[in-house]
Design a protein around this nucleic acid. Structure first.
Length: 607
RNA sequence: CGGGGAGUAGCGCAGCUUGGUUAGCGCGCAGCGUUCGGGACGCUGAGGCCGGGGGUUCAAAUCCCCCCUCCCCGACCA
């Protein structure tokens, strides 16, 4: 229905939301009657919510079609076999919902669709002449997240636009990747989120090497980003680098054991010895599942559990995401004290020197590996070593950047100070390569008749999460303030109750005239006090409001007001449709003017 | 999975510490009347397995045990 009488609208506005709802946008979506909770991280969309989603989806569809996308719909339930063949059946933990159908066949609820796309490509794509392809869908996903929170920002069931590029080679993939990058920027600007930025991201276990996340910056976000205001460097903290300090050029001094009673923290150790924390080495233990050593076992060998000793400089923290990547860990959790003692290490005084080789996987941050004469544990309560030198006193199994970037650290590109910020990931783009095509046999023949795996990319936008961010970015103390591009209706027609005998008839006539002009109207025809109706209109947040009342008739007809402005103007009833159309056009023009033509540089491959 | 908070009418909440009238308040809902440009008012009325189960007691919303659910923080987030 293009228009609606509010007296029949399903879903009421709420005067109050539950006290435990803390995020502003979440409160407003509940109060305004857009969504209702069913279970943790699972929501129903009421008519207003569905209409905004459709509008957002329409923008996404336009931009996907503009870069050659073809819409398909893939199933929500997949046979486990597909996921077993790519290995993700084994790699993914409880986040993937599994069940058996009536015959006992294992099935999964789709949390993403790389497997099914690769399977479609296997059956449909045979020749390079069919490539490139871009397939997309807007469809339900389920991820059994251990901790849903903040309303639609982090849910278990959600609507996602996911697209998949199929190419003959990496050059084709890179072109489609850049196309998506630009399309995403346009999408976020068009729906009212001009502040979304692209940051370098961890391709994770998707098997690729280049990835970007699109981040809406907000305090309620749960990702941490490292940003450089000088050169524009932007990266998720999970991959962010920094220019590390150059270690002092000292001669390696002889190893020396010193008594350091009661210093089981870096803080205590540094102050006891009167040295800066940067002269110490910190040990952090993790339990990890890592791939079995190559050779003896094949690809599907069971991962083995190992204790990981991570070494970072005392003034830094270990970054679990970086550490996990450095050792290709499938799971990484802080180690329990018993596990640490089990390999003969002394918690609080652990040392890479004394611990038996092979018992633990020693991973040293590159700065630790390069720093001379550090102070570290002696594996004995109350004792540390001075002048530890990696390479001389111990051999790390892995040397990599595993340290967290801290606020103010020098940017890896320009050495400007990095700033840390919080953000919500509203979209992501991955260069996948051939992992999925190879696992599922999606191959094509080139012009020479040679067979190659299809090169894939995958690209996602969480539509509900996008809505949550739009509201987060577009509201005031009275309620939601939706951009014209995504509002569920264009105009909120408010009819006040009054003694004027034919007011209802006049308002009805204006409603019909607006509809006839092709305007989408939400008509508040309820018999309620003015305060309630205005409060509801502000809460629901349509961009325009038309009021018909005894007073407005005295002023010449009906009153026209923008949600984002205080001033009003009066137009005669028969000019209401043209006046509203003009206001809509103006809002659309303003929105279009805010689109920046070259908003972001093309992503460079290095991120 | 660890820590914290909460579950009482459709919604928002009090009552619980110290067990004892018929379990309350506001909003909403139904009826009647008054009001009518920023969450009006009067009268009348409907609406409760006090999250579930077990226990203590003459007596349990209230005390004890177990379980479930939701929210927040952490772990996690392909």
């Amino acid at each position: 229905m293009r228009s609606m009488r509010m007296s029949h609208l399903f879903g009421e506005t709420l005067r109050a939301a539950p006290a435990e709802v803390e995020v502003a946008g979440h409160r407003l979506l509940l109060r305004a009657g857009y969504i209702r909770p069913l279970a943790a991280g699972i929501f129903s969309y009421l008519p207003l919510g569905v209409r905004v989603m459709r509008r957002i989806e329409a923008v996404i569809r336009e931009e996907m079609e503009a870069i050659g996308g073809q819409e398909i719909t893939m199933p929500v339930v997949h046979p486990a076999e597909l996921w077993q063949r790519t290995g993700r059946w084994y790699d993914i933990d409880e986040e993937l919902v599994r069940f058996a159908d009536r015959t006992g066949r294992n099935m999964v609820l789709a949390m993403t669709h790389e497997e099914v796309v690769a399977d479609l490509a296997r059956s449909e794509v045979r020749s390079y002449r069919q490539l490139p392809l871009l397939l997309y869908q807007i469809q339900t996903k389920f991820r059994d997240d251990p901790r849903p929170r903040a309303g639609l920002i982090r849910v278990r069931e959600f609507t996602m636009k996911d697209s998949y590029s199929l190419d003959a080679d990496v050059a084709g993939l890179e072109l489609q990747y850049r196309n998506h990058y630009r399309a995403y920027v346009r999408i976020f600007q068009r729906v009212g989120l001009p502040g979304v930025i692209a940051v370098a991201a961890d391709p994770g276990m998707m098997g690729g090497h280049v990835a970007h996340e699109f981040m809406f910056l907000t305090e309620v976000g749960e990702d941490t980003l490292a940003l450089c205001d000088r050169c524009g460097y932007a990266a998720n903290i999970q991959v962010a680098g920094s220019r590390k300090p150059v270690p002092s050029a000292e001669q390696a001094l002889p190893l020396e054991k010193v008594a350091t009673p009661g210093t089981d923290t870096i803080e205590a150790l540094a102050s006891f010895l009167g040295v800066p924390k940067s002269r110490t080495a910190k040990v952090v233990f993790f339990t990890a599942a890592v791939p079995a050593p190559a050779g003896a076992a094949g690809e599907n060998a069971k991962p083995r559990e190992v204790l990981v000793m991570a070494l970072v400089r005392g003034d830094m923290d270990a970054n679990e995401a970086k550490l996990g990547r450095a050792i290709r860990a499938r799971r990484l959790t802080p180690a329990l004290a018993e596990a640490i003692r089990a390999v003969g290490a002394q918690p609080g005084y652990a040392s890479p020197i004394v611990v038996a080789r092979g018992a633990v996987l020693v991973v040293a941050d590159d700065l630790v590996a390069a720093s001379p004469n550090l102070i570290g544990g002696a594996n004995e309560v109350g004792f540390h070593y001075r002048n530890i030198n990696a390479g001389r006193d111990f051999q790390p199994d892995v040397v990599a950047d595993i340290a967290d970037v801290s606020a103010g650290a020098p940017c890896p590109r320009c050495e400007g100070p990095l700033r840390l910020a919080r953000g919500v990931e509203v979209g992501n783009i991955f260069q996948l390569g051939t992992r999925f095509a190879e696992a599922l046999g999606a191959k094509y023949l080139d012009a020479q008749g040679q067979s190659h795996p299809v090169v894939m990319g995958s690209y996602g936008i969480g539509v509900g999460r996008l809505l949550a961010c739009i509201v987060e970015a577009n509201h005031d103390e009275r309620g939601i303030r939706l951009p014209i591009t995504v509002a569920p209706y264009d105009v909120h027609l408010v009819r006040l109750s009054a003694q004027v005998p034919d007011l209802d008839a006049k308002a009805d006539a204006i409603y019909e005239a607006l509809r006839a002009a092709g305007i989408q109207v939400l008509y508040d025809d309820r018999d309620l006090s003015a305060g309630v109706k205005f409060a509801d209109a502000d809460l629901i947040g349509l961009p325009l409001r038309v009021t018909v009342s005894a007073r407005s008739l005295q002023h010449g007809g009906c009153e026209l007001k923008r949600r984002d402005r205080d001033e009003v103007r009066f137009v005669p009833p028969d000019e209401a449709p043209s006046g509203v159309c003009e206001a809509i056009r103006q809002l659309r023009d303003e929105a279009a003017a805010r689109l920046s033509p070259t908003p972001y540089p093309a992503p460079d491959a290095a991120g």
